[in-house]
């Protein structure tokens, strides 16, 4: 099976966020594989181990994203592709990202594409379903279980807590939700092997795209931090008094009762 994973390099979940010069400051920030894409990598490896084939991990980003791709290779993916836009593009949005991915997949023979259901930074959740539409593939979002039998695919997906059982066929694009699996940590031999696995680097030119083709449809005009919350009141005294005070505050100060 030809298995592809869409991977985004994101800020570490625990990073403190600050804004400087109108953008999120990234000096010294730790980066990780978007957590939902880790589920995608793990599932891709399991599907390959069960059905044979090859796992290729694809990311659009800067040179630094190589680190996250190597981690995915160390987990067990076979190949990685970095589409490096650093020198060619200043701006981009979900339209841009998908236009590039569409061009990448144009000449590929694909059985399944796995992505995350959302990236924890920009968090639009658009990339998976947008790409499926361009590639004319069925798309199943927020999956928590997948079984493939021949070309028949049986999926369980999370719909606001309900479980929907869906049947579809290959080729398919799915986006992964927490609960699908427990991503493995790369093993030491895995890390050693990953160094020798192929990691191709492409530029948009290699995909026959130029800047105009991928011009974003939206723009960010401002980034700001939520207003500093006044330190909350931690109540004191006996529990009975705290409870009385809380109810009174909720009623008179917060006016929510």
């Amino acid at each position: 099976m030809n298995i592809y994973v869409l991977l985004k390099r994101t800020f570490d979940t625990e990073e403190k966020i600050s804004v400087s010069n109108g953008v999120i400051a990234d000096d010294g920030a730790e980066y990780i594989i978007n957590p939902y894409d880790e589920y995608a990598v793990e599932e891709a490896i399991n599907l390959r181990d069960e059905h044979g084939g090859e796992v290729t991990v694809v990311t659009i980003g800067e040179e630094e994203a190589e680190k996250q791709l190597r981690t995915a290779l160390a987990m067990g993916a076979d190949k990685a592709v970095l589409i490096n836009t650093e020198d060619d593009l200043e701006e981009g949005d979900q339209f841009t990202t998908v236009k590039i991915l569409e061009a990448f997949f144009e000449d590929k023979d694909v059985d399944i594409i796995l992505g995350g259901n959302v990236a924890i930074d920009e968090a639009s959740g658009q990339v998976g379903p947008r790409l499926a539409e361009r590639l004319d593939m069925p798309c199943v979002t927020t999956i928590t279980d997948i079984k493939i039998d021949g070309t028949t695919v049986n999926i369980e997906r999370d719909v606001e807590g309900d479980v929907e059982k869906v049947e579809t066929t290959l080729p398919v694009l799915v986006t992964c939700q927490q609960g699908l699996n427990e991503p493995r940590y790369p093993s030491l031999p895995g890390i050693m092997k990953a160094k020798k696995k192929p990691l191709d680097e492409l530029e948009i030119d290699d995909l026959d795209l130029d800047e105009d083709d991928v011009e974003p449809k939206t723009k960010t005009t401002e980034i700001f931090l939520p207003p500093e919350k006044e330190a909350g009141k931690v109540l004191e005294g006996e529990v009975d008094d705290q409870v009385k005070e809380l109810v009174s505050l909720l009623k008179t100060e917060a006016k929510v009762l």
Binding site: F11, T13, V19, I120, A123, I223, P226
Partner: peptide, 8 residues
């Protein structure tokens, strides 16, 4: 954005 740590 960023899990509600910032807005755009």
């Amino acid at each position: 954005i960023y899990s509600g740590k910032a807005f755009e």
